[in-house]
Write a protein that binds this DNA or RNA. Structure first.
Lengths: 203, 203
DNA sequence: CAATAATCTGCACATCGTTCAGATATGGAG
DNA sequence: CTCCATATCTGAACGATGTGCAGATTATTG
């Protein structure tokens, strides 16, 4: 199914997903604050009103984009983590680093999408079951990585209970601050180094 | 000078600041994404075009709000820090905690303003000299607090070089994640506890 | 008091989100 | 195959928005 409706036809056939796809690309390029529902509809080859059959308003469309992005982020985290399957200290440490780096690189490479997800642009209910699951997927990756580190004695056990909270907050905060120009890009490596050092993560 | 232009008059007398003031209040209440330049002008008792004498477009007005907010944040950090002037470990530790808590409480009490500052809503050039100074003011508070901790031997010296970066990233990240509903509000205390623990900050 | 500059208004335009009546296609029942 | 209910989409319209411009009003300076 293509995004653009074949001309001469009346039914698109794939509108709901096509709208999300086009909206995602336009947010990616111009930022969520400049997204125009009319432009999205035009891009897909459909009248503006057609969108209202699938999304009650523009905010819902943006929320739809956000939901897909959170799935995508969880997928990426899984991919990053599974690149280092080693069942030993080295593997666990590599996974930790890959999770943090993956998060940051996603943020830096797609700042407009990252802002949409975390900047209050999309009104997603994160208590919602389906949404919770996506967040939990990524969260669990981090937890089990820390569990592994603990199992191998490669993390300070007094610190372990704070692990997920600290790691996510730090990595997220550094990513956000760097994206917005408050910190230089190359500081992220130092952040990861510092995080490993402070959490007592060692070879 | 009041915000509202006295009726029957032609010149406002204080438009530039009045616009910022009204805009700040409206962002505070409804979020930057719903700010209307026309509504701001109306609130101040002036025609929409009048605003264009002081700000070339709506984004610049929002940027003006942002600049003031960064000044305000630095002021608050100074106030929080100066509440604990003790020239000893206890004082330095209290300052560290107060800086983090102040940052978080500001974020939680004014999420819309916090988003405007850090969510990519305002296009501020943080390389700009005046802007740099405000950020540096807050940054220096953190640095000198960490310097004090080091001086009193209350922080792991190996970790010290990462201190500012880690503390700001972590506190900012936790604040942002909590505001957006990704983490529960009460997790911030744990974040601060964990931060002190991992950085080796001790009595 | 006169003239120049600063400040503000009124109107216009294109664009936007959204609504709604009605057009068009699809799929199932007879 | 035909007919009809239903899903899907169009077109025109409304009010609101950001912004530009010509000109009105006030302040300031000589």
């Amino acid at each position: 199914m293509s995004l653009l409706k074949p001309r001469g036809t009346y039914h698109h056939g794939n509108l709901e997903e096509a709208l999300i796809g086009a909206a995602t690309q336009m947010v990616r390029a111009n930022g969520a604050e400049h997204l125009s529902l009319r432009a999205v509809a035009a891009e897909v080859g459909v009248s503006p009103s057609a969108a209202y059959h699938y999304y009650p308003d523009k905010d819902s469309l943006i929320a739809g984009v956000g939901k897909e992005l959170f799935e995508h982020l969880a997928d990426m985290q899984e991919a990053a983590s599974s690149k280092f399957p080693g069942k030993n200290v080295k593997g666990a440490r590599a996974r930790f680093r890959a999770l943090g780096m993956g998060y940051f690189e996603w943020a830096v490479s797609e700042p407009n999408l990252f802002r949409l997800m975390f900047g209050g642009y999309c009104s997603i209910d994160f208590a919602d079951a389906q949404m919770k699951r996506q967040e939990t997927r990524a969260w669990n990756l981090l937890c089990s990585c820390l569990d592994d580190l603990e199992k191998y004695g490669a993390i300070d056990p007094r610190i372990r209970p704070y692990g997920e909270l600290l790691a996510w907050s730090t990595v997220h905060g550094a990513s956000a601050l760097i994206i917005e120009g408050h910190l230089p890009k190359d500081s992220f490596n130092a952040v990861l180094d510092g995080l490993e050092l402070t959490m007592g993560i060692r070879q």
